[in-house]
Design a protein around this nucleic acid. Structure first.
Lengths: 266, 266
DNA sequence: GGTTGTGAACCGTTTCACAGCC
DNA sequence: GGCTGTGAAACGGTTCACAACC
């Protein structure tokens, strides 16, 4: 397959582990809040609490960036804000295009989080001619015919896809062909991109399904409500699975536990 | 701290690893597409490609659910759809409330992903009295004064927070007090919840910052554009950090490499 | 006394590679 | 011959615990 790359082993980014990179924005946010309150220094313990991680992890994370703390004292807030910003590449600003200005795209366009740190909405792009020229969050929507021109003229390297799933791959291909090398995908599809292009996805229904899984487990326990225990009870929702087709209902399948009960799913 | 729990070691959910759970929705989506095209069976290789993972991982994931495949043949699509749905708890439907009906909340309310599988928007809730009664995506917005009543009457256990960051923790506390045990948080804040409550977060600016990090690294390489190489070049954006305060500029800090260049950040 | 920075142990996840089964 | 299911090895990340330092 031509475009069919899955995911690179994370560019081996000069040492900083991917998990650490993913937490740096969290630290940065907590530090920025401290900075606004003019707090001069902070201990790993305090900062970790503010960022919702444990302090050992935080210290190890920071150790990958260098030795920025002072033993017995803590970390200098301003200094760390700067170092993390620099590490994340937020000392330069990144023009971003948003493709697909429906409800979600419009919400993203209006989201304060962009301007806040290093990001700038360079253009809003939509395929619907009726949208063209209409200002959304103060920025006029441009037609997708001009996508390539916009990307190359503004030197855009980050694209946000907020289109319906059906066209997301095409949009992605065009973005990549035009020079975009980082994509944030809100469409519920797996995108194929060539090597060297990063894709991150944000997917509402996946998140909900993960929550539902755990929720179901909680309901299944239904024992000792107070303080966590073991008591591994089986949830076992009573419904019958569709008979395995293809091979017309022959060899008995082994379910996870025992065999199948009776009642139809919706 | 009363509410200050960080994150539990993932409920130890009767064996299925968390990483696997997070991929089940992906498999389910790919399988549903196959099912709609009436494909009867699929190999781990094909399905893995459709879901954007590698086949060994997929097989191992499925092995946690049970032995649902047939050697030499592959997996029965319908059967797997059913088994995964069941495992994820999607054979029942989950009423969900969305709190904070701004641009984003409205976009989420209108998102098809809800209805698609097991989820139902039970209520839209906003603190602005001007919104009350206004239909959004066909559902009338209710005032947040009634939050507790709505939750308990509808037996809602999943809440989506799409409010501004400033009120997210309060909203969260009220949701939890009213009986919600799973929260999907779109507000850019760390939420504290008691033990037994799951929180997942979706954060645009974190995602963008992670992309920016990698983007910066790519720009720093700027060597051998074709096919991946090593060539670990230093990016080194030229800017001066704020002098470490607190201790008035004494002991030299060791940056990650050498010492600091000259030019001010914005 | 307080707090960082970090080796070493630990744990969860991914990948490998092949036996087992159709 | 083809494909699944799974031990075992490899990997990456987290946690522990303490020496180094202020």
């Amino acid at each position: 397959m031509a475009t069919g790359r899955t995911h690179r082993p994370a560019t081996r980014s000069r040492g900083i582990p991917e998990a650490t990179v993913a937490r740096l924005p969290l630290y940065l946010r907590a530090l920025t809040a401290l900075s606004e309150r003019s707090v001069p220094t902070v201990s790993s313990e305090e900062l970790a609490a503010a960022a919702g991680v444990n302090s050992a992890k935080l210290r190890k994370d920071f150790s990958y960036l260098g030795s920025y703390g002072t033993r017995g004292v803590g970390y200098d807030v301003e200094y760390l804000v700067y170092q993390i910003s620099r590490e994340l590449g937020l000392t330069q600003d990144w023009p971003v295009v948003i493709v697909g200005i429906g409800n979600l795209g419009a919400a993203l366009a209006g989201y304060g989080g962009f301007a806040s740190r290093g990001f700038r909405v360079a253009a809003l792009i939509d395929a619907d001619p009726a949208m063209t020229g209409k200002p959304v969050a103060g920025i006029p929507v441009q037609h997708s015919d001009d996508l390539e021109k916009i990307i190359s003229e503004d030197g855009v390297s980050i694209g946000v896809i907020a289109t319906p799933a059906g066209v997301a791959q095409q949009v992605c291909d065009r973005l990549v062909a035009a020079g975009v090398t980082s994509i944030l995908n809100f469409a519920p599809t797996v995108l194929s991109v060539p090597d060297g292009v990063d894709v991150r996805k944000v997917d509402l229904s996946i998140e909900l399904q993960i929550l539902a899984f755990h929720e179901q487990r909680k309901a299944g326990e239904e024992t000792s409500a107070e303080e966590g225990h073991d008591a591994v009870a089986e949830p076992e929702p009573v419904v019958v699975p569709p008979a395995p087709r293809g091979t017309t209902g022959t060899t008995g399948r082994k379910g996870p536990d025992g065999d199948v009960p009776a009642v139809m799913p919706a």
